[in-house]
Amino acid sequence: MRIVGVSLLLGCIKKMTKEEREKANKDQINRFISAYYSEWRFIQILSIQKKLSNKYDFFQDIVDLVRETDNSAGDKTIAQEITNGLLFDAVQHSIQYIEDLFALINASSKKDYFIKNIIQYKAGKVENLIVKFKNENKIIYEHFHFPNYPEEDDHTEQEKETLRVINEGVNRLGLIIAEITEYYKQHQFFYNQYKHGLSIALRPYDDYNQEQVALDKRGEFEKPSIVALDSLNFKNAGKNQYGNTGYLMMPAFSDNVRPHMNTLQKENNLLRYVMSPRDTNIERIAEIASKTKRCLQILLHNFRSIINAEEFYDLRLPAEKETEVIEFKIEIEENTP
């Protein structure tokens, strides 16, 4: 068989009508959401939590292998370097989870170009959306695709009660978003240092001694914060210490460094430690991930409902109980906000 040519017939490219674009977007968005798995980063964090709860058994064989090139490796390695590394990994997943949420918020704001904007999203724009977030009900309604109905005098008592429940749910959602964006700002620097160049201190205060390891095995050792490395000059150092300690820690404050400290810091060349908030532990990270997942799932549900609705919107808001949502069936009218 001799093949002389292959061609793909695309047909004439014509401009889409508004109705055709709406149908095409509907199919693509439904496929995207069906293929998307909102639990994955939460599972990653829970798996890290499980490893930490059983770390001395889980990592024993691995430490034995590490000892081939690091003969000092042992339980102290599990207690400090491995534990700190896993916490940084959990922080990374939690920060990426929050970015996932806001990337979806950003992309879903323009449903005609949702696929383009979610797959080719600009990280800087999403980051800016997170750090500049304002907890205002108007913004929450808009971000989570919920019609914002003003209360009117001719509303029945039942309608007024429904609006009250909606406003409570929106307020609750706003508080959750405010909490996770604050966490993001407190941990973004640690995420960046871990992701880019491993500029972190997994062993910031030398080896743990036997007493510290013994306390850790009993669950009684109060661990210090995780530590990222920085060298930004004193004037701008606060940029990387949002919500953390107000002082600057210089771990290599030796006789050779002290006389030239001013020159080194002006050059962005003076080593410093940046400590995370003291509550940066796996329980807190898992809690933030759970809240992020809750917001993300409400967003996807509401967005999909808006896309597919014909007569009614089937929308959700968070209930008072963390594992529950409040469902609303709202008739679509011409003047629906």
Rank of each mutant, 00 (worst) to 15 (best):
F234L: 04
Q44S: 09
Q158P: 10
L65Y: 11
D216P: 01
E19D: 07
N54I: 03
K185Y: 10
I78Q: 00
Q265I: 05
N192T: 03
Y191V: 06
A178E: 13
R21C: 03
T17Y: 06
L248S: 06
Q297W: 11
Q28N: 12
I78K: 04
I139K: 07
K217W: 01
R2W: 06
L300M: 14
S94M: 10
V165T: 04
I29P: 02
P259E: 02
Y205W: 09
Q297C: 14
D153V: 15
Q28S: 13
S199W: 03
P259Y: 05
E331L: 15
G243C: 11
H155Q: 12
M275N: 13
R203W: 08
E334F: 13
P277S: 10
E333Q: 15
V66P: 00
Y149G: 03
G85K: 03
F189N: 01
E331C: 14
L300H: 05
G74F: 10
V170Y: 00
A201L: 03
R172M: 10
Q158T: 15
V126T: 03
A123V: 14
S276P: 02
S53H: 08
E39M: 09
N308I: 14
D153H: 12
N256E: 08
A309I: 07
K111C: 11
I98V: 13
C12E: 10
P259D: 01
S109N: 13
K110L: 12
D206M: 12
S225H: 04
Y37V: 13
P224F: 10
R316I: 12
V6M: 13
G11A: 11
N71R: 12
D61Q: 15
E283S: 11
L65I: 14
K134Y: 12
L270T: 05
P147S: 01
I282W: 06
K110Y: 10
N137I: 06
L296D: 06
N256F: 09
Y194M: 02
K111E: 06
D255G: 07
S53P: 02
K55S: 10
V91L: 02
F234N: 02
I177H: 02
R67L: 15
Q265K: 04
F312I: 12
S305L: 14
E99M: 12
L299R: 01
G174T: 08
I285T: 05
I306N: 15
R164C: 07
G85A: 01
V165Q: 03
K23C: 09
A123F: 11
T323G: 09
N192L: 00
V6W: 07
R258L: 11
Y184A: 04
Q241R: 15
